[in-house]
Nucleic acid binder design. Structure first.
Lengths: 144, 144
DNA sequence: GTGATTGCAAAGGGTTTGCATTGTC
DNA sequence: GACAATGCAAACCCTTTGCAATCAC
């Protein structure tokens, strides 16, 4: 999605549009490699220096619950990376290096009808999902 | 798998069998709901009181890398739960409550031929994988 | 005896939270 | 003006690590 589209959705849901929020979404939309929360902060501060890490986290959580953000579980000292779904792009998943935290896009979403049915049956309200394959990338494999 | 089977695999790989290791595997094999690392510690201490949390973590990591343990990413204050693959049971995945950390088994493994091909192409050495659907369980949904 | 394993204690680090303040609508 | 959002600082707490001592083989 583009930044204006997301902003519009926020307004529709009654959320206020602050400069910080605008900047955070902007950074996420323009990011290549999915950034960590800290990396988002670093980039956001170039635009508006007075943003705090907890605001980044609060907005990441919000974006995630609204379904515009993929949260990648890294399982290394870096816990998570965050990726905005591009326009027209389906949800997709990642091959993750548990050594250096590098990740490679894998394939389209694996959510199945069967899963959706199970979610309904169990009475869960879905917020997001994740599919990761963990391993060592060629570089980290050699280091071991 | 059963505890003796896993012990045997450890021996084959040249790992030593300590009482702590034996107890940790025993607890995992007998667990119903996948425990957190701390819960494993608590149960292990009933058998052998002198086990430390870091030893639990070290063995969980080992079991995970050997492919006998599913690590579930919870994304709540509880980070992970751990589940030994039962005998003859295929790998499976979970529907996870981000409120209370409760989890429900979902379905068989989603690893595809396509994924394995991608892993090979990228030169990764696979260690494990995870597929989780996050949401609020009926109880936590009401609380919000 | 040798090298893996453990316990201890401390550090590390991502993420969350309470509260007063600020800013959007 | 009301209420959401922010900044600050501190807390939280899971997980990892270094190191000396211990133990399995």
């Amino acid at each position: 999605m583009t930044q204006p589209e997301i902003i519009k959705k926020f307004k529709e849901k009654g959320y206020k549009i602050t400069p910080q929020r605008r900047a955070i979404i902007d950074v996420l939309v323009k990011s290549g490699k999915p950034p960590t929360a800290k990396e988002v902060l670093r980039k956001v501060r170039v635009i508006s220096p007075e943003v705090s890490l907890d605001t980044v986290y609060r907005n990441l959580k919000l974006l995630s619950e609204m379904g515009y953000l993929i949260q990648i579980n890294l399982r290394s000292s870096e816990r998570s990376r965050f990726e905005i779904l591009k326009n027209g792009e389906q949800c997709h998943h990642h091959l993750v290096c548990i050594g250096c935290g590098d990740s490679v896009c894998l394939r389209q979403c694996v959510l199945s009808e069967q899963d959706l049915k199970a979610i309904k049956e169990k009475g869960y309200e879905m917020v997001g999902h994740a599919y990761e394959i963990y391993g060592y990338c060629p570089k980290c494999h050699k280091k071991k």
